[in-house]
Design a protein around this nucleic acid. Structure first.
Length: 503
DNA sequence: AAAAAAC
């Protein structure tokens, strides 16, 4: 059997790998590392969860041991589609590079230029970037790409989806032809293959099967829900409470606005919850993800920014509040659970109008997913207009039954009890009020938050989103009051990677 | 019907 010591990695790297508890490489690692060490170009077809990151981090560390970086002339460059993925790769360099004295610079948007500039001045051995911020640095003349020996293009198919390819081409043009290029993609459709042909020279192609663990260890269920958001939220709460074995869970929505709305709704109902989407300020994004990883937050409401690649080892549940529009996103989302052979559960809320998306998913994964209790035909007939209590029929019964048996997911924050328990005889009305109130200003936070008749009919005004976001940031930065995430003086190591220069 | 990414 192949072990890490058979791959040609340096002693420093091997000892860090051993310390991390690994002895046997994954197929992509065993396949790619020897060729990477020979300075060959690589075309790796591998999904996240296959150990892909280490398959380029480890040989890069070994290759970087000879030589030293000069100011503003990075020696290697890694491109990632999202800030979170970039930060994750940086963490890998910390972990496996602990015996090296390498300068690793994380160049991502949403944080200040100062720290990044300092690192570039000092000379970076490794640059890990999202494309926009890298180009920004280049345009400011802070960066000379002529010394780059190794270029890594990660998640190429996703870069394509996200329209990053022109940026990638611009960046690649600045890097000498003599470089080594490591190219990774989860899939290889013709478009990506053409791209690979442009970037790579005589590449070694390594293809590994997608991790089969998901299909085997994740219990997938569909939950028929009415179309209305408040009814879906109510059903979701019942579902979460019914999970006896919920350790933590990610709840996916299709839109950023719905992430924000559902987050506030769950927060108001007393759940331990965070949110993650691309319009949040980077500080909150970092905090939320770190809090979730540290188990300070039980539930994370997220957009598809969290669907792919994020390595959170132990997620017990995935909830699709919205069914994904693109079937392949379903696979990525549920791939957040059941990792490393653990068991996981994935629930997808399905409304009548979602039928065609469900068909596409079942076709893609080539299996029928079981309904939790009753399929779409069990739903009450759709109605027009509002009448009392309508629509919760079918969910209320179950909700009431389970109300006495709350899962671990329900964690009420001290001091918020009375707010979370506001009484309403009419569930529709209760939810309306909740939505109207979901964005308290700091000053309101400490005063009486019980609904007053005056704002019963108030609706959130989308035009105020910016203003509300600013207020929210203000609140997060300056208010010491209860919030769903807070580290006090405990700054997670994850944040320090972004915030502090490594000495 | 969306999301992601620079200021």
């Amino acid at each position: 059997m192949t072990t890490f010591s058979d791959l040609g990695l340096s002693q420093k790297v091997l000892s860090a790998v051993t310390d991390a508890g690994y002895t046997v490489p994954t197929p992509i690692q065993a396949g790619a590392i020897p060729f990477a060490l020979q300075r060959r170009d690589i075309c790796g077809i591998a999904q996240t969860g296959t150990g892909k990151t280490a398959s380029f981090v480890l040989p890069m560390l070994t290759l970087l041991e000879n030589g030293r970086a000069r100011a503003r002339m990075p020696r290697t460059l890694i491109l990632e589609p999202t800030r979170e993925l970039a930060a994750q790769v940086a963490e890998n360099f910390e972990k496996y590079g602990k015996n090296h004295k390498l300068n690793v610079a994380l160049l991502i948007g949403g944080v200040s230029f100062e720290e990044q500039n300092r690192k570039l001045e000092r000379g970076a051995d490794v640059l890990i970037c999202t494309p926009g911020r890298l180009l920004d640095h280049c345009e400011r003349g802070k960066l000379l790409m002529t010394g780059v020996e190794i270029l890594v293009i990660d998640e190429a198919d996703r870069m394509l989806d996200m329209g990053f390819i022109p940026d990638i081409e611009r960046i690649a043009k600045m890097i000498p032809f003599t470089r080594q290029t490591l190219f990774f993609s989860a899939t290889m459709p013709p478009e990506i293959q053409k791209l690979a042909d442009r970037f790579l020279q005589n590449p070694e192609r390594i293809e590994v099967a997608p991790p089969s663990s998901t299909a085997k260890t994740v219990t997938q269920r569909l939950v028929a829900v009415p179309n209305k958001d408040y009814e879906k939220r109510s059903r979701l709460r019942d579902l979460i409470r019914a999970q006896g074995d919920l350790k933590n869970g990610i709840i996916f929505c299709n839109r950023k606005k719905d992430v924000a709305d559902l987050f506030r709704s769950l927060e108001r109902h007393g759940f331990s919850v965070g949110a993650l989407h691309g319009d949040m300020d980077q500080r909150s994004r970092t905090n939320m993800l770190a809090g979730f990883k540290d188990n300070q937050i039980t539930l994370l409401v997220a957009s598809d920014v969290a669907a792919r690649g994020l390595d959170i080892p132990d997620v017990s549940h995935v909830f699709n509040f919205d069914i994904p529009i693109h079937a392949e996103d379903y696979v990525h989302r549920i791939g957040r659970t059941g990792r490393a052979g653990r068991s996981g559960a994935a629930f997808t809320l399905v409304a009548k109008s979602d039928a065609k998306y469900l068909d596409a998913i079942e076709k893609l994964i080539d299996q029928k997913i079981e309904w939790l209790d009753g399929d779409l035909s069990a739903l009450p007939a759709p109605t027009e207009g509002e009448d009392e209590g309508r629509g919760r029929r079918g969910t209320r019964e179950k909700g009431d039954r389970e109300r006495g048996d709350r899962g671990k997911g329900r964690e009420r924050r001290a001091g918020h009890k009375s707010e979370a328990k506001t009484e309403h005889t009419n569930p529709v009305e209760a939810e309306e009020i909740e939505v109207a109130r979901m964005e308290p200003v700091a000053s309101e936070r400490k005063v009486d938050r019980r609904p007053s008749p005056g704002n019963r009919n108030a609706r959130p005004n989308p035009a105020n989103d910016d203003q509300r976001e600013r207020r929210r940031n203000h609140y997060r930065d300056h208010d010491d009051g209860p919030t769903p995430v807070g580290f006090g003086d405990e700054i997670p190591a994850f944040m320090l990677i972004v915030a502090n220069a490594k000495s």
